[in-house]
């Protein structure tokens, strides 16, 4: 890998925000195409962060600072990406379900998805089913991500899926669920399409699902 791309990769991996910004500017000034910076340095770094999270070399603090660095770099890169007509790999509407005010897991998933090249529409916490329905109508995402931390709010995931079905939108989106109490069996039972045990795997599973459907890879 080129020195400047390697520097971006390393800075994201170690969560060094200021350095990522400087290196992205240096890479652009040196004439590196935005798509190359994004794919070879930034997305590759976040993939490595995800790998380290899954193998318990990284935990939430390391992942959050890496994602924060990625976000900073992406903000600088975005005009160049638009100029080069590089589209996001997909769009995700994301939120913590009704009654649940916990946001860290949902935020991590959002940052990781952005790091994997998705456009993320974050609806926040305590999002009622009808707000998910409205957001799907407005943003036309390919994926809806539902997060819950409490056993008592998991059922709101089912209510959200049912609301999407009642609105005739269920078949237009892939519904991904996750959160501490959520299990694959529960995801199956409520009719979700994807289950992500933690943030790192959410992006990989969403990308893989896209590939299966002939979308981005």
């Amino acid at each position: 890998m080129d020195d400047v791309l390697q520097a971006i990769y390393d800075s994201i991996l170690e969560g060094r925000v200021t350095e990522v910004a400087a290196e992205v500017q240096r890479a652009l000034a040196a004439g590196h195409p935005a798509g190359v910076i994004l794919n070879q340095a930034m997305i590759a770094a976040m993939a490595e962060v995800g790998r380290r999270f899954e193998t318990m070399e990284y935990f939430v603090p390391e992942m959050l600072v890496a994602a924060r660095a990625m976000k900073e770099g992406l903000a600088l890169l975005r005009p160049a990406l638009v100029g080069a007509q590089i589209e996001p790999v997909g769009k995700v509407v994301l939120g913590t379900v009704s009654g649940d005010l916990h946001d860290i897991g949902k935020n991590l998933v959002g940052m990781v998805l952005e790091g994997a090249g998705f456009e993320v529409v974050d609806l926040g916490v305590n999002v009622p089913p009808e707000a998910f329905v409205a957001a799907v109508r407005e943003h036309r995402p390919q994926v809806v991500g539902l997060s819950a931390l409490l056993t008592t709010t998991m059922l709101a995931m089912k209510a959200t899926i049912e609301a999407l079905r009642a609105a005739g939108l269920r078949d237009q989106v892939v519904v991904m669920v996750g959160g501490a109490p959520v299990t694959p069996a529960f995801a199956d039972r409520i009719g979700a399409d994807l289950y992500a045990p933690e943030a790192a795997s959410a992006a990989a599973r969403a990308r893989s699902r896209f590939a299966d459907q002939g979308g981005a890879e």
Partner: peptide, 13 residues
């Protein structure tokens, strides 16, 4: 402290 009846829970923010 925030009460959410539908969640049968209180959360601290």
């Amino acid at each position: 402290v925030e009460v959410a009846h539908c969640a049968q829970a209180m959360s601290a923010l």
